[in-house]
């Protein structure tokens, strides 16, 4: 069995900024527990001598030159804004500090 608990799921909901209901927490705890039990088997073969692959096709040094492009107009920037004022996006009061 994995260690998925309702408290852990609640904490993950905070990290992922999803306001989970108690019912969801309960349901997700059971589902994640079963899923994690199944996928945890990756560690069986992932021995230290095996390198990790983060890109399926290995490339490196992919750059763009320092020339302007892809600029959006202010209207395009704001065209989907749920709320804006003064050419900027408006959000309600922020509780936390910046990182």
């Amino acid at each position: 069995m994995s260690e998925i608990t309702p408290d852990l799921v609640r904490h993950l909901g905070v990290l992922a900024r999803i306001q989970l209901s108690d019912g969801e927490v309960e349901r997700l705890t059971g589902q994640l527990d079963a899923i994690v039990d199944n996928i945890a088997k990756v560690s069986e073969v992932a021995t230290p001598d095996v390198p990790a692959t983060s890109h399926p096709i290995a490339l490196e040094n992919v750059f763009r030159s320092d020339v302007p492009g892809d600029l959006l107009t202010p209207a395009q920037v704001l065209q989907n804004a749920p709320d804006s004022a003064d050419g900027r996006f408006r959000v309600t009061a922020i509780l936390g500090e910046e990182q």
Binding site: V77, D86, G87, R88, F89, R90, V91, T92, A93
Partner: peptide
């Protein structure tokens, strides 16, 4: 200040 502000505006 962030504390007590009614709302915030974001410029990217």
């Amino acid at each position: 200040r962030i504390q007590g502000a009614e709302y915030s505006l974001v410029d990217y």
